[in-house]
Nucleic acid binder design. Structure first.
Lengths: 214, 214
DNA sequence: GCTTGCGCTGAACGCTCGTTCAAACTACGT
DNA sequence: ACGTAGTTTGAACGAGCGTTCAGCGCAAGC
């Protein structure tokens, strides 16, 4: 017996949601498979360029079947973002609870960020195709993205206040770092000479060196 | 009989080109207006998300009129890339012909790059929506992009060889720099606190500082 | 006033895509 | 063997898109 269904009572906040099919647990693995295929297609072709038929074909499915697992295409995109943000915020929290110094925090953040994006998310650049999200989903994703931004900025400010880093605008710095990292999927080639570990290390070297006092 | 008759016999090399409308000179200004509107829409919505109707509406036109100036949507995208690459390669050549040192070369490249992208191209991130280009156009754009890449890498290698910059992989460095810069349009707000000049300066400070010897 | 050609429009066309759904298939408990 | 719940499919639909084109307004030249 399923225990009491939450949020069934009223929920006057939102428009009446269509009933969710309520999939069994065995479907979870397939859902993730779809997410990976979708993320890959979104990255290569953009949200509107990637058709549901292509996303399904990469898994040897027909497109109709995707609607057994997701309500629509936009929900797939949203789920991709949630999946990525889960990993990244989890990483951030780990670092915040550690007792490392600002430079070591930043290094771990960059190295693991690169590793996560390249190896686990198959090159899903973060913060992509945001405009295709519906207003409600967009708000959620932006809120969590800002949370990550803020965490990174805190590390930078900590380093600046402690005199470890040069005194500059932490906001611009964080944009520069995130830009360099988020751009990686555009040129990364898994069969190329540089491994994800190596890229993460070199990027961390470079991006942290620029912060230090001359 | 496999001779290559360039005129009309069979022309197996290229598909038969449709007649080019050959517009009068007065149309050149409107063409650029369309390019700017299109670039803006492509950036915000992606190539497939930006409809020709929206591109036209921003100029108070109807979509049919765009086909008086361009053969199709893909040609508009291609023209956007050519326009950007013209500016950027022009900038690169200016720098190469100067007698500045590697660090000053790189500074000028970054500062002017940022300024050009933000103020002149209205945030057209370079190398965007490449997958939407036809094979022929794609080849041209990639060739010119590589030319720019190579120019930047040369500056870096020059600095490394001269002992001014730390010894690392120039390719990865150039990717990091281009990523940081190309990501700017994603967060830049023209009405925000930071001007394009200021952003260019701070980015150049940071990105060059990371190269110097410790 | 008439012609000419540029700039532009409205309507129409195919085509592709997202989405729906009834039916079919599969694996398993009884 | 049968029923049932989980999963997949094929076909169909409607909307929206890129593209075409005949034709209209209009300004300049004769």
């Amino acid at each position: 017996m399923t225990s009491s269904d939450p949020a069934r009572a009223k929920a006057p906040r939102r428009k009446r949601r269509k009933r969710r099919p309520r999939l069994p647990d065995s479907a979870a693995a397939t859902r993730v498979e779809i997410l990976k295929s979708a993320a890959c297609a979104f990255r290569r072709l953009g949200y509107h360029g990637a058709t549901v038929a292509k996303i399904a074909a990469a898994l040897h499915m027909k497109k109709g079947n995707l609607y057994y697992y997701f309500r629509n295409k936009e929900e797939i995109l949203f789920a991709c973002h949630q999946y990525s943000l889960d990993r990244l915020l989890e990483l951030l929290e780990q670092i915040e609870q550690s007792d490392l110094g600002p430079d070591e925090r930043l290094r771990r953040l960059i190295v693991t960020f690169v590793h996560t994006i390249l190896d686990e998310l198959h090159g899903t650049a973060l913060f992509l195709d945001l405009e295709a999200l519906g207003p409600g989903h967009l708000k959620m994703v932006i809120a969590r993205r800002d949370e990550f931004d803020r965490g990174m900025r805190l590390i930078l400010q900590e380093g600046i206040r402690g005199g470890l880093f040069e005194q500059t605008d932490a906001k611009l710095l964080s944009f520069a770092i995130l830009g360099a990292v988020n751009w990686i999927p555009r040129w990364y080639n898994p069969d190329g000479p540089a491994s994800s570990q190596e890229i993460g290390d070199r990027f961390a070297d470079y991006l942290i060196a620029g912060l230090r006092h001359a």
